[in-house]
């Protein structure tokens, strides 16, 4: 499998940023407040490497929990991906509560807060997906979002160890709050090949010879 070129990753980043513009508009309308969403970096990472990176990047240590919003997407012609949005639980709770205008600091996330998180994740993931759908030029059917919260160590346990993950780092800021998270697209090998071919074709970049390992 070949690696993405810097140009291709730049093009992907731009595509994500464009579609996140819509998500930003949707959010601002919902909470009637300026919200910024951005994708500074897009890259491909192996599952274990990502887990390692998530662990070492945690300010509060391994004990911190992450909030994971998961949606499954598939196309009619066999492309499938799990889209995951990851946010630190504490920070995302703060944002949700701010959106709801609540001052409580209950330790655990409530059912309604979890629902609100699902919707926020849903908006972000759908808008990212829209840019992929544009790439593929085909319909991508998405499932409803599900919310889980778990420690970093267990976060990707249910995903295949050899899956390659397209990682888009997401920055979200609202008033004084800044939250940094990730949108992950987990794909199996055929899906990745398919995806790469589409990316090369769409951005008009020369298709590199496939290197299978």
């Amino acid at each position: 499998m070949r690696a993405f070129t810097a140009l291709e990753l730049d093009a992907l980043t731009e595509a994500f940023n464009l579609s996140l513009g819509e998500a930003t508009a949707a959010f601002s309308a919902i909470v009637r407040e300026e919200i910024e969403l951005s994708v500074p970096v897009v890259e491909f990472v192996a599952r274990d490497e990502l887990a390692r990176r998530l662990q070492s990047g945690q300010a509060g240590g391994v004990e911190d929990r992450l909030c994971r919003i998961n949606q499954h997407f598939r196309t009619g012609d066999g492309f499938a991906t799990d889209a995951l949005l990851l946010f630190p639980e504490q920070g995302s709770l703060e944002i949700v509560r701010r959106m709801l205008g609540e001052d409580t600091s209950a330790e655990h996330i409530t059912e309604l807060e979890q629902d609100a998180l699902a919707e926020i994740g849903n908006i972000i993931i759908n808008s990212c997906m829209s840019s992929l759908a544009d790439l593929f030029g085909s319909e991508i059917i998405g499932s409803l979002p599900s919310v889980q919260s778990s420690s970093v160590a267990r976060l990707l346990e249910d995903k295949s160890p050899d899956s390659l993950i397209l990682v888009a780092r997401i920055g979200m800021s609202m008033s004084a709050h800044n939250l940094s998270g990730f949108v992950l697209f987990l794909m199996d090998v055929p899906s990745i090949d398919h995806f790469m071919a589409q990316v090369s074709r769409l951005f008009g970049l020369p298709e590199a010879p496939a290197e299978r390992s």
Partner: peptide, 24 residues
């Protein structure tokens, strides 16, 4: 209006959406 929007997205693009009570 968001409900109308996501219904359109479901029909046109095949996306799913949740309207949470907290935000709607």
């Amino acid at each position: 209006p968001r409900l109308a929007l996501v219904v359109r997205e479901a029909l046109d693009f095949g996306w799913s959406a949740r309207l949470s009570h907290a935000l709607h």
